[in-house]
Design a binder for these strands. Structure first.
Lengths: 213, 213
DNA sequence: CAGAAAATTCAACAATCATTGAATTTCATT
DNA sequence: AATGAAATTCAATGATTGTTGAATTTTCTG
C-alpha cells in the first residue's frame, strides 16, 4: 500500500518550484533549495544530477498534466460544437480555462509553476528552447483548430495572434503585482477569474480582427 | 570641444545592457561585464557603486528618452485628432510606434534594452517595483487618454486591457526566438515592423470589445 | 533476519562571486 | 610645468557557489 507520504524528493521539487518562480534559475542556490525543503544540500544533486536537472524536473512535472488537461478541454469543445467546428472563443477558452481550474483551487504549487513558466517564456536563455520542448505539440494542435475556425487567415497573422495571446497570458500569470500598483487596487493580480473572463473576449476579438477575412 | 568619444563608462553600460538582457541580473557577473566592455573589474563598482547600481543605471539611461518620445507621440496624435480626442487605435499607435522608431534603425543598444525591459516586466523580483518606478507616470497619461476614448469603460476592464497589451508587447520584444520555432519560419521575431502592424489592430479590437459599451 | 540497494548525510573541494582600499595613471585647470 | 581631482588599475578579501566521494542510515527484497 502506497501511503500518502510527501517524500524528500517531492519537497525538493516544491521548494525549487517556488524559488525558481520568484528568483529565476541563477537567483536560487542549491543551498537555498535544500534549506527551504528542509533537506540536506547534497540530496538535490543525488536525485536530479545537477542544478539544471532539478530545473528541468520542476518544469516537466506539471507540463504533462497541463497538456493533457488542455487537450481534453479542446476535445470537449470540439465535440460540443456543430460540424462547422468550435468558435474562436471556444478554442481560446479551452486553452485558458484549464489554468484556472488548476491554479485557482488554493493549490500553491500550480500558482508557482505558472509564475515559473511565465518567467521562462520571456527569457532569452530558456524561452526559445524549453517552451518549444514542453509545449509545442500542444500549441500546434490548438493552432490547427484555430485555422479551421478562421479558414481565410494568413498563417503569419495567426502565429502573431497566438504570440500576443501567449504574451498576455504570460504576464498575467507572472503575478508581479504590477497591475495592482498601476491601478491602485482597482484591478488585482490575484483575481485570476476576472483576468480569465476578460482575456477570452479580448484575445478573441483580436484574432477575428486580424484573421477573419 | 566635446569629442565623439565612447568612454569606458558607456562601454560598461552597453556591455551590461546586452548581458543583463540575455541572462538576467543574477546570470551576469561583474567580471563578465568588465571582460565584455574590455575594462578593469573594479571600474564598474567605482562608477555605479555596486552591481545593483549598474543595473539601475542601465534601466534609467534609456527610460527617460523613451518616455519623452512616447509623450511626444501622444501629444501629436492628440493635436491631430478632432475635438472628440484621438481614437483607440491612434493612442495605441502612439504607445507602440516609438519603440519601432528607436529599435529598428540597426541600433543594437535599443534592442537589448527592450529585451531587458521585457525580462524585468515579467519578473517577480523586479517587475512590480522597477516598472512602476520608471514607467508609471507615462502609462497613467496614456490611460487618461484611453478613458476619454472609451468613456463608458469600467476602470478595472481598462486596466486589464492595458495589462494584456503590456504582456503582448513584452513577449514580442523579448526576442526569445519562440515564434520562429513554433511557426517554422513563417513568422520571424526579427520582423518588428510586422509585429507592430499587427499588434495595433489586435490590441485595439480587444479594448473595444471589452470597454466600448 | 540477512543482505543488497536506495536514500541520506557529512565533509570538503576548487571555482567564482562582489566588493574594496591602496597605488597608479590620466585629465583638466592654473 | 605644477597641482589637485577624477579615472583606472592592482591585489587581495571573505563569502558563496555547485559538485562530489565516502560514510552512514533507511528501505526494500528474499
Amino acid at each position: 500500500m502506497t501511503m500518502n507520504k510527501l517524500k524528500r524528493k517531492d519537497r525538493i521539487l516544491d521548494a525549487a518550484e517556488a524559488l525558481f518562480a520568484k528568483y529565476g534559475f541563477e537567483g536560487v542556490s542549491m543551498r537555498k533549495v535544500a534549506e527551504t525543503a528542509d533537506v540536506d544540500l547534497a540530496l538535490s544533486s543525488y536525485h536530479f544530477g545537477n542544478k539544471r536537472g532539478l530545473f528541468d524536473a520542476v518544469l516537466l512535472r506539471r507540463a504533462e498534466v497541463l497538456n493533457e488537461t488542455r487537450l481534453a478541454a479542446l476535445d470537449r469543445c470540439k465535440s460540443e460544437a456543430g460540424e462547422g467546428g468550435p468558435t474562436v472563443e471556444a478554442i481560446i477558452n479551452a486553452f485558458l480555462e484549464p489554468l484556472l481550474a488548476h491554479g485557482y483551487q488554493e493549490d500553491e504549487g500550480w500558482l508557482h509553476y505558472f509564475e515559473l513558466v511565465a518567467q521562462v517564456n520571456s527569457s532569452f536563455e530558456w524561452g526559445g528552447q524549453l517552451m518549444t520542448k514542453y509545449f509545442d505539440p500542444l500549441v500546434r494542435t490548438f493552432m490547427e483548430a484555430l485555422k479551421k475556425a478562421l479558414p481565410n487567415a494568413d498563417p503569419a497573422d495567426l502565429y502573431w495572434c497566438y504570440h500576443f495571446l501567449s504574451g498576455a497570458l504570460t504576464l498575467t500569470f507572472a503575478h508581479t503585482g504590477r497591475i495592482d500598483q498601476l491601478s491602485e487596487g482597482v484591478a488585482k493580480s490575484e483575481d485570476m477569474v476576472g483576468a480569465y473572463q476578460r482575456m477570452v473576449p479580448f484575445v478573441a476579438a483580436g484574432f477575428k480582427r486580424l484573421c477573419d477575412k
